[in-house]
Each structure stands twice: as structure tokens, then as C-alpha cells.
Design a protein around this nucleic acid. Structure first.
Lengths: 131, 131
DNA sequence: GATAGAGGTTCCAGCAGGTGGAAGGTCAAG
DNA sequence: CTTGACCTTCCACCTGCTGGAACCTCTATC
């Protein structure tokens, strides 16, 4: 399979796939014309990567997950540990964003949003003490 | 004021402040010895930036907010528009992360997390159809 | 006056995770 | 035999800093 086909099937841009090859996540063969030639296993890996990335795993996490995936003697605890750690980070990000949302919602509501210059949003950024 | 003082007061690392000067967000004077010399207004801008960044505004948003802040004839609607747009993006990010959290929580729960190799996390990444 | 240490300066490189574009090779259809 | 879609490489750029090297400057102490 050429990169275009794999791209469509895995849902990853060709550029991204080349990048993944660059950083050693996948190693397709080469046709005599120099084109990358992806085997079924490469395709599988890329689909795996696509999903793992969509779940927000870092590239390094993905590298580790792929290694565990390849290792038929893995302990599921190792996989779970990566996922748990990631979940913790997701949760902390959500909490941060919710804080921001709260503040922002409040500010947007306070602001008249007309053609007058006085604006509680700017006032708050000027001096957060007002909360 | 030297960069160290400003750094402490604004809660921004010196490196960040130099970077903000680089990209034209702030333009401190210079002492004869070459040291940056921050006026009260510079200090204010940096504190403003620190807060706006903490609320997740992009640097470009910050640039625009600073311009509006400087413009005493601004319409508060312009400020509000930036904040609203940002809020929308925050909300969409929260929604994305909540989706991810849901999937991840489910996966972590499903996985035995022991020394056996079978792992629903890997299975799902292999074939998302299982959801 | 020497020296140590805590500031300050510049510049260059690198992080994550790609993306855009230029310059060129290749293939299938008409 | 040309057109257009694909492929290749390489290099630069994005966001928002951060680390480090090499060097200058100020203040305090001996």
C-alpha cells in the first residue's frame, strides 16, 4: 500500500505518517521506485497510533503502548498504568479549564458588550483582586 | 526596575519577559549598563499579560487585548467578542476532554491490571469498533 | 584592589507534534 | 507525449516558551 491509501484508511495525513516514520514509530518497506510500501502490520500500527493520539496519549506514551502491544507477554497492569496516569492528567486539565471557564463566563456576563469603553474584563485583567 | 524585580512582581520568569519583549508585547527602556529598565506601565502590562495568559488567551489575543486596553475609546463589545470566542474554544476543549475521560475511565476499569497479558485497552486501540 | 556571587546580557538550540511549501521524480490515462 | 495526481526529500515555520553557554556588571567582603 502507498502512503495515500494508508493515510485514508488510518485517518492520518501523509505528512504525519512520514513524521511517524522519522521518529521510528513505524518502518514501512520501500518499493524500487522509492515509494513507501506499507504492510498490513504497518497499517495496523498507524490505525493504533491514530486512535491512541485521538485519546490524547503523547507520542512517548504511544511508543510504549506499541511496545506493549507487540509484547505478547506483557502484563496488562503496565498498560493500565499508562492509561491511568494519562487519565489523571486529563482530569487535571479538565479541572483547570473549568476554572477558566467559570472566570471567563462570569466576565463575559459582566461586560455590557456595547460601544462604551468601560469593561470589567479589562479591569479584571488589570487587577485580578476584583476576581 | 530590573527584570528580576518585575519577574517576581508579575509572576513571570525573566526568560518569558525577554521573550515578550522580543515579540513586541512590551518595550522596556535600557539603563546605560544595558540592563532593561521597566517603568510602572511596563510592569502593569506584564501583570496584565500574566493574568490573560493564565486564563488561556493566546499571545495574539493578548496583543489585541493590550491594544484595546490602551485604547480609551474602545468599545467594550470588542473586548467581549475576544473573550466570548475564547470561552467557546475553552468549552469545546472541555467537551473533547470529557469525551476522552469517559472512554479512558471505561477502559481503565475494564482492564484487570494484573500480570496477565490480555488487555481491553490495547484491544480497543487496535480496533475502536468495540468502543 | 581582588574576588566571589548574584544579578544582568546575548545568542543559539530544542521541546511537542506536526504543517506548509519548494523542487523534483513517477505513474496511469487520454 | 503531455497532463495531473501521486510520490520523494528537505528545510522552514508554528506556539510559547525554556535551557544553556559565554560573557558583562554590580555589590559586598576581605
Amino acid at each position: 500500500m502507498n502512503i495515500g491509501d494508508v493515510s485514508k484508511r488510518a485517518g492520518l495525513p501523509p505528512k504525519t505518517i512520514r513524521y511517524y516514520e522519522d521518529i521510528g514509530l513505524v518502518t514501512p518497506l520501500r518499493d524500487p521506485n522509492g515509494y513507501r510500501s506499507f504492510r498490513g502490520s504497518d497499517m495496523h500500527k498507524l490505525a493504533f497510533l491514530s486512535r491512541a493520539r485521538a485519546l490524547g496519549f503523547t507520542i512517548e506514551d504511544c511508543r510504549n503502548l506499541l511496545a506493549l502491544w507487540d509484547d505478547k507477554d506483557r502484563a496488562s497492569a503496565d498498560v493500565q498504568a499508562i492509561a491511568k496516569e494519562h487519565l489523571t492528567q486529563i482530569e487535571s486539565k479538565i479541572a483547570d479549564l473549568q476554572d477558566i471557564r467559570k472566570t471567563l463566563t462570569h466576565l463575559v456576563k459582566e461586560c455590557a458588550g456595547d460601544d462604551r469603553p468601560d469593561c470589567p474584563i479589562l479591569q479584571t485583567l488589570e487587577n485580578i483582586s476584583k476576581q
